[in-house]
Amino acid sequence: RHRTTFTSLQLEELEKVFQKTHYPDVYVREQLALRTELTEARVQVWFQNRRAKWRK
């Protein structure tokens, strides 16, 4: 699998949602996936990684 490189616009969208909730439900993730043109799975993994980073 290749590494997904996020654009600054995608990161902006993702971070905006992360500020509101660290655990977006499937509906929120789907909406975010559509807005960022990423798959829902990529969005889910981004949140997992972002939460790990936040905990440190």
Rank of each mutant, 00 (worst) to 15 (best):
H22I: 05
Q31E: 09
T4E: 13
T36G: 02
T5Y: 08
W46F: 08
V28K: 06
E15G: 01
K16W: 04
R3Y: 13
F47M: 02
R42N: 14
Y27L: 13
A52W: 07
V28N: 13
W46H: 02
K16L: 07
R55L: 13
R35C: 06
V45W: 13
Q44I: 07
R3K: 15
P24N: 00
V28R: 04
T39R: 03
T4M: 15
A33S: 10
Q31V: 04
R1Q: 05
Y27E: 11
V43P: 00
F18K: 00
L14Y: 00
K16F: 05
A41V: 06
T39W: 01
R29T: 14
K16C: 07
L34R: 14
Q19I: 07
T5F: 03
V26R: 12
L38A: 09
E15Y: 01
P24R: 01
F47P: 03
E12H: 14
K16H: 09
S8I: 07
V17Y: 04
A52K: 11
Q48G: 05
Q44H: 08
Q19G: 09
K56D: 07
R35Q: 07
T21H: 10
A52D: 14
R50H: 04
Q31W: 08
V45S: 15
L14R: 00
F6G: 03
R50M: 06
A41Q: 13
V45F: 11
T39G: 06
A52P: 01
F6D: 04
E37L: 06
Q48P: 02
T36R: 02
T39M: 02
R51S: 01
V43Y: 03
Q10K: 01
F6I: 13
L11V: 13
R35F: 05
T21P: 01
L38I: 08
N49L: 09
Q44L: 08
R51I: 03
Q10F: 00
T36D: 01
K53N: 13
T4Y: 14
L34E: 13
K20D: 10
K53G: 12
V43N: 05
L11F: 06
R50G: 01
V45N: 14
T39C: 03
R1Y: 10
L14D: 00
E40C: 07
K56N: 10
Q44C: 10
H2I: 15
K53S: 12
Q10P: 04
F6N: 03
T36F: 11
D25L: 02
T36C: 10
R42I: 14
E37C: 11
F6H: 03
F6E: 10
R50T: 05
R55A: 14
V43G: 00
Y27I: 13
K56P: 04
L11A: 11
S8N: 07
V45Y: 12
V28T: 13
V45L: 14
V45I: 14
Q31C: 09
D25H: 02
E30R: 14
V17C: 12
L9N: 15
R35H: 08
R29Y: 12
R51G: 02
F47H: 03
T21I: 04
Q10Y: 00
T21N: 07
R55H: 03
F18S: 02
E13G: 02
W54R: 07
V45C: 10
R50P: 00
E30A: 13
F6M: 09
R29A: 09
H2R: 11
L11H: 13
Q48N: 10
V26Q: 15
Y27N: 14
R50L: 01
R29S: 06
E30M: 13
Y23M: 03
L32I: 12
E30G: 08
R50C: 06
Q44Y: 11
L32T: 04
A33T: 04
V17G: 03
K16Y: 05
E13H: 04
L38V: 07
A33G: 05
R42P: 02
L14I: 00
T36N: 06
F6A: 04
E37R: 12
T36K: 00
V28D: 10
N49H: 09
V28G: 03
Q19A: 14
W46A: 01
R1K: 14
F18A: 03
L38P: 01
L32A: 04
R51D: 01
L32F: 03
V43I: 09
E13N: 00
Q31L: 08
F47C: 01
Q48I: 14
T7G: 06
E37Y: 06
R1C: 09
L34F: 12
R35W: 05
L32R: 04
L38Y: 00
W54A: 13
S8E: 13
T21F: 04
K20I: 14
R3S: 15
K56W: 01
A33P: 03
F18W: 12
L34D: 09
K20V: 12
L38T: 12
T5D: 15
D25S: 11
R55M: 09
W46Q: 00
T36M: 14
Q44M: 14
V17R: 02
L38F: 01
K53C: 07
E13F: 01
R55E: 11
L32D: 01
L32S: 02
E13C: 05
L9K: 14
A52Y: 07
R35G: 04
K16S: 07
F6Q: 05
F6P: 06
V26I: 12
K56I: 09
L9T: 13
R35Y: 05
R1D: 06
S8K: 15
E37W: 03
R1W: 08
W46R: 02
H22S: 07
V28L: 11
T4P: 10
V43H: 00
T21E: 06
A41D: 15
T36V: 09
R55G: 10
H2T: 11
T5S: 14
T21L: 06
K53A: 13
L14T: 01
Q10E: 05
F6W: 07
P24F: 00
Y23W: 11
V45M: 12
A33Q: 03
A33Y: 06
E12C: 05
Q31Y: 05
V26H: 12
A52E: 14
T4D: 15
T7K: 01
L9F: 13
E37K: 14
A41W: 06
T21R: 01
Q10A: 09
R42V: 15
V26G: 10
K16D: 02
L14P: 04
V17M: 09
H2A: 08
L11E: 15
N49D: 13
V28M: 13
E13W: 02
Q44K: 08
L14A: 03
N49S: 08
H2N: 15
E13T: 05
Q48Y: 06
T7Q: 03
T36H: 09
T4I: 15
A33I: 00
T5W: 08
S8D: 12
Q10C: 04
E30Q: 14
H2C: 02
T5E: 14
R51N: 08
E12M: 11
F6C: 05
L32G: 03
T7R: 03
D25F: 00
T39N: 06
Y27G: 14
H22Y: 02
L9M: 10
A52H: 08
R29P: 01
K16N: 07
L38S: 14
Q44V: 08
Q10L: 04
A33M: 12
K53W: 07
E15Q: 03
K53V: 10
E40F: 04
R51M: 04
E37M: 09
D25R: 00
A41H: 09
T4W: 08
T39I: 01
T4V: 12
W46M: 00
T5I: 09
F47S: 01
T4C: 10
N49I: 10
Q31S: 11
A41S: 11
Q19R: 08
F18L: 04
K20A: 08
R42H: 13
Y27M: 13
E37H: 08
A52S: 10
W54K: 10
R55W: 06
L32H: 06
Q10I: 05
H2S: 11
T5N: 12
V45R: 11
D25A: 05
F47Q: 00
E12A: 12
V26W: 15
D25E: 07
E12T: 08
F6T: 06
D25G: 06
E12K: 09
T5A: 08
A33V: 06
W54F: 12
N49C: 08
R51W: 03
Q31F: 07
